[in-house]
Design a protein around this nucleic acid. Structure first.
Lengths: 349, 349
DNA sequence: CTCGCATCTGACAACGTTGTCCAGGCTCTA
DNA sequence: TAGAGCCTGGACAACGTTGTCAGATGCGAG
């Protein structure tokens, strides 16, 4: 099969396996080094005939410009970094994709990494990206102290935080209205007659979790309901703990008649638990989930627009790079209550 | 608030805003350039006292090694590229994450980009990554001719294709058993008494779609069932077309009693359509979907392990870089039929 | 006290590209 | 035909790092 390449063809040994450089192209085309550079970059000042000869040499040698050298010379990498929690989480896919699209529109590549919710790993990753001299950084914080980025920001790395605010530095932040969204969601349950309402969320050291908890408390207080300690479960990170927490608050005397869940992962687990109950328990979840409308009953959620979060953050980042922006700002995007049935169930004591 | 940094502190003007270099560190510490390099890279041959002085200078200046220059000198970037179709697709999140974890274990960063199913964009992206001198490339092909990668592969860029095979070049490929999975899924429907079975899938120019279609045809043929043209819909890419296709094959004389869907997006749409039908129609879908078990009925699927695909591909890529591998190979991972109810419904004529 | 050796340090070139600047050849005009 | 001006092409330095190699320093042994 003459039309294929076998790996055995590859030149062994030397670095990059003897990749041709502009010098090689110049020699082959019989022109100067800079002339090749001009052709490659589409700069003016090359006669059509010379350009053709250079182009032929490029094609013949399979030359490809070395962007590392280019970056070293020019000082801009045309790439931005994205540090997020977990790409496998359905919440971050669209966000990442939105950031990528904006980057692409600005001719930049996106490098991303997952912090796995570990502050140390977040720092390690962010600094590795800075060492590559990304032009900017979009960070979904795992930690709560970002002073380690001070030298980078001072050195000109555009930085925007998303989903959670930065810790101890003054920087651009784009978030959802976690407090308001949670308060509205819980108020919705109260409006449908519930008073014993459970809350299952992430560790309060995570800003979004703390804000949503605050929203829950605010809604309850507004309604004059005293929250009992056992209605709340914080830091339920894995499905087993969420399950136990849900079962606990559904059992015993004075069980909850409704549950507010603090994020999509918790919601999914709680849906399973509720499906096993004989009694109908109301549910409102933070974050939308796919197929929520097809379940019985449909799942009422407080939805945030993760793509909009990413897009807004990335656009702001490039405006920093343009020099258009000066003062860091905190942008809060609204959430949307989507009623589908589960949040409208009446209390079943 | 003395503990925060304001962007206004940033030095204006010069490239990178005056980022300190090893030279600056050396000057401040009163040592030679190479000594700084040694400290930064943890090379031996530096007295503790000197090391301390250098470290102090590094901290004082906020120095961070410029990896672009390092790459230029060393020839390895310790980064790999991933070209996939759409990060927002739940199928690719875990795959990407798996690749990232393997890369991380090898001390490499992951740069990824979405091709949006456009061959031209795939090529553009892959070559941009090569220009950055990534050490390797994991590609989920959108196009069917990858000869443009020949010079790169020859130059030593490790390359692995995932999910779909490479076109016109001989390279490592990791895929799911699309043919077998689809055949088993359709056979499962036949075993439950169905004979008029619909197939809704992607454009057959996409390898996975073609294979799954082939599996459908094989299962039908094995059972001695002549497939009617109007039972098949190929190239239904957006929800509207899928919906129409499903409605068409469910209407008219001799409607299908079961549907096999070719990917997760199609499955989701078809679930919606079936939910509106008065008659119970059986369904088996390719790709698992979240909450499939909680629907009424649960959705029977042919599941592929996207994380395993990513992990296998990345591991193979690093083995190429180790020099452990020689001959390109085609690795096929098995799929798994998960029965949840929708695929076990009897025909309702 | 001096030599030799081991240890530590630094000068220098090179990586591949781009920006600056100058040389040479051409055209056009007087 | 000579001079001015324009256009094209190329020599050279610089970007920040690392590998090479030779010099400096200190210590112990003879």
């Amino acid at each position: 099969m003459p039309e294929t390449t076998r790996r055995a063809d590859r030149l062994p040994g030397t670095r990059y396996g003897n990749r041709p450089t502009m010098k090689d192209v110049a020699a082959r085309a019989g022109v100067g080094l800079k002339t090749v550079s001009r052709v490659v970059n589409g700069e003016p000042g090359v006669t059509p005939d010379t350009e053709r000869r250079v182009q032929e040499a490029i094609d013949a040698l399979g030359f490809r410009r070395n962007d590392s050298a280019r970056v070293l010379r020019k000082g801009r990498t045309a790439s931005i970094g994205l540090v997020l929690e977990d790409l496998a989480d359905p919440f971050y896919g669209p966000l990442s994709r939105a950031v990528e699209e904006v980057a692409r529109a600005h001719g930049a590549l996106l490098i991303n990494g997952s912090s796995a919710e570990d502050p140390e790993r977040e720092q390690e990753l962010a600094l590795a990206l800075c060492a590559r001299r990304v032009d900017g950084l979009v960070v979904i914080p795992a930690g709560d102290d970002h002073r380690y980025l001070e030298p980078e920001i001072r050195a000109g790395v555009a930085t925007v935080f998303v989903d959670r605010p930065a810790g101890r530095i003054d920087a651009d932040v784009v978030l959802s209205d976690n407090f308001g969204g949670a308060r509205d969601g819980v108020a919705h349950l109260i409006a449908h007659g519930h008073r014993r309402i459970g809350f299952i969320g992430d560790m309060p050291r995570i800003h979004t979790a703390a804000e949503r908890l605050r929203g829950y408390r605010a809604a309850m207080e507004d309604a004059g309901i005293a929250v009992e300690e056992r209605w709340m479960s914080l830091g339920a990170t894995n499905p087993e703990r969420v399950r136990r927490a849900a079962e606990d608050m559904l059992a015993g005397p004075g069980p909850v008649t409704a549950v507010f869940t603090g994020n999509n992962r918790v919601t999914v687990t709680v849906i399973r638990v509720l499906a096993e109950q004989s009694r109908r328990v109301a549910l409102v979840g933070f974050d939308d989930i796919e197929l929520a409308d097809l379940l019985q009953p449909g799942v009422t959620v407080v939805a945030q627009d993760s793509a909009a979060l990413g897009r807004t953050a990335a656009e702001r980042l490039f405006r920093q790079l343009d020099g258009t922006l000066v003062a860091p700002e905190r942008i809060e995007l609204p959430t949307r209550l989507i009623t589908r049935g589960s949040g409208e169930l009446p209390p079943a004591d």
